[in-house]
């Protein structure tokens, strides 16, 4: 990476500040436009009066116009103050901090599994196009794409937990245990299921991208030079083929930070996805804004990171 690249990076980082502010305005607006507010869930409790809820709104500053609320939120947010959750009464930072490790653990494991499966399978499938391996992989990846996660999860839970008693059906740790083995036993099912969808998608991308590259002239030249098959595929073809695949993987990674809502719900996994759903149902604005901004930040950040990685993988890419 040279100095022009650095200038470019500095510009990009500075440029993402107004971008994030813009995103936050839109998010804040959309959240407030959605029907219902934070005090509405309490109305489900018999015996809660309208006056109590009005008082609650006033105390939370929800009686102020939305732009005023936004400015207050932004002012606090830039000072690193994310406020208090309306539902739990605790600091938003505390609530979120508790959920991030669980999500990263599940997402990261699934990510690694998927990566280890998808790339070799994609390469193999492309190199031996129209072979049995290719057909089997193609068939399985379509199964992986189209299989409803909740159904597969139910089947595996009932097989591994009810029939065979091999693995726990849900949760992150056994209460009172929490040893390494115990955690591994808990993560196997959710991580495998989450990995399956990623694996199918990335594998297909790798395959398609490899096929494109393998048809190019320079590969033929490399082969004609008498280079070994492995060198051609891994040194010449794969490096170029990976560029578009990286984009997809990076964007999926950014999405992973926000949590896998369905998997987390089915496996009672205490991650960000479930926090988001609960906060959404309760219209817990401070938590929602924090979660959405983390998601946006991850997306912007990963885009930037992808650009940097590009310049490493493909030296032809220069940023002016």
């Amino acid at each position: 990476m040279n100095s022009t690249n650095f200038t470019f990076l500095a510009r990009r980082i500075l440029g993402s500040v107004p971008l994030l502010i813009g995103i936050s305005i839109i998010l804040f607006g959309v959240l407030n436009l959605a029907p219902g507010g934070p005090t509405d869930v309490y109305a489900e409790i018999p015996g809660v009066s309208a006056e109590t809820l009005e008082n609650l709104k006033r105390e939370l500053g929800l009686d102020q116009p939305v732009p005023v609320q936004y400015v207050r939120w932004l002012g606090a947010a830039v000072r690193g103050e994310w406020g208090y959750s309306i539902r739990t009464g605790r600091r938003v930072a505390t609530d979120v901090k508790e959920r991030i490790p669980a999500t990263l653990l599940l997402g990261g494991t699934a990510f690694l599994l998927a990566l280890l499966g998808a790339i070799p399978l994609g390469i193999m499938s492309a190199v031996r196009r129209y072979s049995t391996v290719d057909y089997v992989f193609t068939f399985l990846s379509f199964v992986g794409f189209s299989m409803p996660i909740f159904w597969l999860a139910l089947m595996l839970q009932s097989l591994f937990a009810v029939q065979w008693h091999l693995l726990p059906s849900a949760g992150m740790v056994s209460i009172g245990d929490g040893s390494f083995v115990d955690r591994v036993r808990h993560i196997i099912l959710p991580a495998s299921i989450l990995a399956l969808a990623y694996m199918a998608s990335w594998g297909r991308f790798t395959r398609a991208s490899m096929l494109d590259v393998l048809g190019l002239d320079y590969i033929r030249t490399a082969k004609a030079k008498g280079l070994g098959n492995g060198t051609v595929i891994y040194r010449h073809a794969l490096r170029n083929a990976l560029v578009p695949v990286l984009t997809v993987i990076a964007l999926d990674f950014a999405g992973m930070i926000s949590g896998a809502i369905i998997t987390e719900t089915i496996f009672a996994w205490p991650g960000m996805g479930r926090l988001f759903i609960e906060s959404m149902n309760g219209r817990d604005y401070p938590v929602l804004m924090a979660l959405l901004m983390i998601g946006s930040l991850a997306l912007v950040g990963m885009n930037l990171l992808t650009d940097i990685i590009y310049s490493f993988v493909d030296p032809r890419i220069r940023y002016e």
Partner: peptide
């Protein structure tokens, strides 16, 4: 008494069957 938070009713039923 341990209260386990299990939001999904199918998972809840699985956990009852498996004795969890």
């Amino acid at each position: 008494i341990v209260f386990k938070i299990i939001p999904d009713s199918n998972t809840q039923s699985t956990q009852l069957k498996s004795g969890e």
